[in-house]
Each structure stands twice: as C-alpha cells, then as structure tokens.
Design a protein around this nucleic acid. Structure first.
Lengths: 188, 188, 188, 188
DNA sequence: GATGAATGAGTTTTCATTCAT
DNA sequence: GATGAATGAAAACTCATTCAT
C-alpha cells in the first residue's frame, strides 16, 4: 500500500494560505511551507511541480469558495443582496488581499499555473459582473445617491471589507455595521 | 573634494519607495534597487550599511512628510479638520501600505534601524492621538452618530484612503467625495 | 532513504582543522573548505548554519580528544603525570594554536556556536585545574625549584609544546626530551 | 606647500604592526588600518601601492630593529651573549609571531614587496647564523649538555620568547628568569 | 510514495583599489 | 597631496528544485 500521507492536500493549501497572508507573496517560500508541515520539503514536489503551482492552486481554491457563496446570494432584492454579498466578502476578506498578488505569479512556469490563473481571472470577472448588476438595479430602483459616480460608490463599498474589525465583533454583526455605515453615513 | 555623486540620497529613497510599493517588503532587493539607479550595487553600501537601513530610512522619510502635513491641519473645527486630514492621508495614501511592513524589519541588524523604527512608531502614535482627539471632539459636538461604536467609525474612516481612485479624479476632489460618502452615506 | 553522503561530518571537521592550522582563523573560508571536499559549497550549509558553527564544532572536537587523553593520565606520581601530560599536549600540540582563536568567534551568530564555545571554555578550565593540581603536588613533594615563581614554571612548561620538532623525532621521544630539558636544564 | 600630512609613515607602520598582532595576517585589512588612522582610506595609497607593501614594509622595519639590537650584543663570552640575545628576543618578542606570516605575503604583487621579502629572509638568516655561532662556541667551551641534540637545544631556547609573561615582570628580569630556567632546569 | 542529500543560481555584504575633484 | 565617490571581485548565505535510495 505504500506509506501513509503525512498531510492532505487540503492541509497543504490551508497552510499556504496562512503563510501567504502572513508573509506576502514574495515572502512565501517552499522551505517555510515545509517547516509548517510534517515531512520533508522534497515531498511537496510529489504534489506540485513548483512553488507557483502551489500558490495558484491555493488562490484558486479560495476564489472557488467565494464564488460558491456569492452565487448562493438571493438577488431578488438588490439592496438586500448587496448586504448579503458584503457579508460574504467580509467572511472571506482575506481573498481580496490574497488575490491581489495573483498577477505576480509567473504564468510561464507550467501549464497548470496558467490554467489556474485563467480560472481565477474568470472568477474575478464573474464577481465583478454580479456586483455591477446589483449596483445597477439598486440605482435604477432609486436606492442610491445619483450625485456620486458609480465607480466611487463601488470602490468604497468593496473597500469596506478591509476595514479592520478591531472590536472583534461576530462577522455577521460587523458586516451589518459596515453596510449601515456605508448606506447611512457617519453623520448624526 | 572627491567626485560628485551619481545620485542624491533623496533619489535613492524615492526609488526605494517606488519599489517597495511595487514589490512589497519581501520583494525588495538591493540588486533591484541598484538596477533602477545608475552605478554599481556596492555603491549603495557606501550610504547604508544594509538593506534594512535603506527601508527604514525610506519609511521614516515618508512618515515625516505625513506628520508635517497632518500637524499643519487647522483643528479649530473638528469636522473640517477631519476632512482636511482625510485629504492628507489620501494624498499620502501609500504611507499606510508602506508602513504596514515596518514590523517586518529586523531591528537587530543595526542601531540606525532600531532608531528609525522607534521614530516611526512614535510618529504613528502622534497621528493616532490626533485622530482620536478630532473624533472625540466631533462626537462631543454632536456631529457623529452615537449608535456606531467609535472604533468602527474610525476604522472605516481611516480605511477610506485605500479605496482605489479608479476614475483618477484629482486628489482634492476624490478625498472630498470620500468624505462626503463617509459622512452622508450612499443612500439616496 | 535519501542518497548517501559524499563525506562524513568527521571528514569535514578534519579538513576544517587542517585548513585552520594552515591559514589561521581569519584565513579560513567556507569556499576554501568546499574546495577541499567533494561537492558544492552549498552542501556544507546543510550541516552547519554558518562558518562560525563549523569552526566551533571543530574546536570542540579537538578539545574533547585532549580532555579524554588528559583524564586518562595516572596522577599517582605528580612528576610522572606531568611528563605524561606533556606527551599528551605534544601529541595534540595543534590544539593550543587552534584554540587560541576561539575568542575570535562571534558567539552571537547562533546558539549552537555559543554552546560549543561555552563547552570549550569549561574544558579549558578543567585542563588548567589539572595542571595546577599536579604542579602543586610536585612542589609540595619537593621536586621543583622554589626560587622560580610557579606561574613562570607553568608558563615555560606549557609553552614547550610549541617548540618545533625540527628533527621529526617520534613524539614520545620528543616529548621525553622536552621534559628532560625542562626539568634538568641545558647546562652541562 | 600642499596639505599637512595627517600621520607619519612611522605611525602608519606602528598601527599596522599593532593590528597585525591583534588580528593576524589574514585579519589585517586596509579598511581596518584606515579606521585607526586619521584621514581617508584612499590616502594610504599615496604611500603604499597595495596592502602587501604595507605589511612587508612593517615586517622589514621590525626585523631591522631586531638585527640592530642583536648585532650590538657583545659576543666575547658566548653564554653571556646568549643571555643577552634572549633578552633582545624577549623585548621584541612580537617579531617572531609577526614574521611567521611573512611567507603568506604574495610577493608577486609588486617589486617593492619582493625586495622587502628578500631583505627579511636575509635578515632571518643572519640571526640564525649568529645563534648557531653562539651555540657552537658554547658547546665547544663545554657549557651545554651534549646528550641533547643541538637543534632541540636551540628550538627550546628560541621558543622561550613565546612563553607568556603572566606576572608582567619587567622584561630584563623576565628574560633572566627564562634563561635561568632554560639553563638550570626546573628541578630542585 | 517519501525523503535525505546535493546543487546551482541568486542575494547580501565586504573590501582593495581606482577615479575625479 | 588629500579625499569622497565608485566599483568589481569575492565571500557568506538562501532557496527552489532535482537526484538517488
């Protein structure tokens, strides 16, 4: 039967994600990864041909989860949908930070990398389209100010997920608060 | 006496800043820096003993500029002051991203590094205190909602500077827009 | 599992010792070492984190051997013991020259270095204590001149090991000769 | 008239000697030297074309002094002469340690180096001849044991200068003690 | 499958020496 | 003469990746 796997592929990608968030793309090393897993560094190459593949696979897995959750959002009421979407993004807030480095990955090292990168880009596009759709409908239905350019509206909305949750509120409460502030402003 | 310098220290630090923003702290290399300056890599070591000193000096210079601008803000009216402060932060928006990596610098490599780091930390504190002061007064004077916890209010305010200015508006206009959105919300 | 090593750790330390004696502490380079071993320079770093660790490990190994031999000396008759001890020191005469540079090693580079250095120092102390003990008893028993200060007696005794054996006599004969000269002098 | 010299050539060579003794030949650097002198590093190259010339000049100066003192020794009584010679060597005891590295100097870098090295070697020879002459006469006149091979006698005699003067006795007293021990031995 | 060992390319840093003012 | 600036060669170390058991 051969030896038992020291760790699952999922564990490997989880650790990769953790280390990417901690050290950034350029600070992520296979050596570092292996030090946080049991087993030898060379064993990692049984699963992935090179560093780039690991990172790309990690990013792909992350965005898949986001897409899954985002497509489960009920879009019948666009404002409610936006609020729910914000919660999804807040829950998966690292994905934004993480995928920000996707363009740094050298796609040339292997086809697998190129494919994953392609997949990621398409997923990104899907999310963007969904967001535009919801914003469009919200505007049409007169829920949002028209004196603010839509890109600015979106930019600020999307950027909310990076606001540090300093009080460590539960995410559903925190995302509610953020949505409230975005919608109603800070003014008394 | 001696030859004339190939580049000024200021040019070196400017380039350092640019590269740090482009490649992140872990992606910044002395070799990379030297490739973007005239002359040999070793020349850089005439002015800085090691990589860390370069980065620390760069960060210090950046925060000095922010502190300068921030202390020039007229605080007689706290809400006006907040708006002006936001503009300062937006103008120097990289400083946030840049200094986020300050804690990655190994202070142990030389005293110069440790001192710069200390200076940076203190400056950070000064900025925080100013922000708290203005928020405190704004609340007292009844300008801000009291149903939102102050940390949340601040977190979102401060986070605004990272919202991408996708339309490339002039910074004064863009920061005005951001302040407006933060204060009055997105709702019609 | 894994390949078989190209050289043993012992071979590495032997070569290190040879090169240290040949070139001195400051003239010892990892590059030099690798050129005298099979394989690439970087391989050495699989076993030792830095140059200092190599040198410290080498010195430790040398002094361990000396301690071993020195503690095997029968001390029932102090003068006989001194003669035997001199032979040990002559046989391992490089150890003196080698360990003279121990204080040049920067203990700060890693814990391994600091520990080895500590070990070396303690071993040195043990040897010194043994020597003092034997000299003390020899004096008590009236074997040595009392008009010479003991430190001078010891200094000269210990220094004998550095006298070059120009005739390449067998070490047991050479050390016997040295002891004879030290004890009885050169005068007819 | 030009600028005033920052330091004399003699001061430069004195410092060179000090640093050579402290750090060994391989640990001696022009940078280090310049840090212990006033003025710029490049100024040193006004006096010496390269590092080797500095070291060679230093060694030459040292041996000249030894030769001077050694030739002033009155040789009418060989044993008295030996004692006086020992004192000379003890006074200049660093010269032994210093010149031990003369062979490490790459004579090929410049003629000046080659010439100094040649001079040093000849001086060495002169000293050796003098020593042999005195030993020869001492033996002839029956002052020394004949059961000890002459090379051993000389080796031990010469090696005395390296015995550490731990009690910091005045050199004339210390060299007298050493000669006494060498001649009469340690036995009661 | 797993892994210890090996390695070459890349990065940081140091230093002797030369250049230009 | 003196010196600040520049530089290339060399050393120390790191790390992704391959090899062989």
């Amino acid at each position: 039967m051969g030896r038992k796997k020291a760790y699952t592929e999922s564990e490997l990608l989880d650790m990769t994600k953790k280390l990417l968030l901690e050290h950034g793309y350029e600070g992520f090393h296979v050596k570092l990864l292996s030090q946080h897993l049991i087993g030898a560094r060379s064993t990692i190459y049984q699963y992935y041909a090179n560093k780039e593949e690991i990172v790309a696979a990690c990013m792909k897995r992350v965005i898949i989860k986001v897409i899954e959750k985002a497509s489960a959002v009920d879009e019948s009421n666009p404002m409610v949908a936006l609020q729910q979407l914000l919660q999804v993004y807040v829950e998966e807030s690292e994905f934004h930070q993480l995928l920000g480095d996707a363009n740094k990955i050298n796609a040339g090292v292997s086809v697998a990398v190129a494919q994953d990168l392609e997949y990621i880009e398409q997923s990104h596009e899907i999310l963007k389209v969904q967001l535009m759709r919801l914003f469009g409908r919200s505007l049409q239905e007169g829920h949002l100010r028209e004196d603010i350019p839509i890109p600015a509206l979106i930019s600020v909305f999307f950027n909310l997920v990076n606001a540090p949750n300093m009080m460590k509120l539960p995410l559903s409460k925190w995302s509610g608060l953020l949505f409230d502030m975005w919608l109603n402003g800070a003014k008394r």
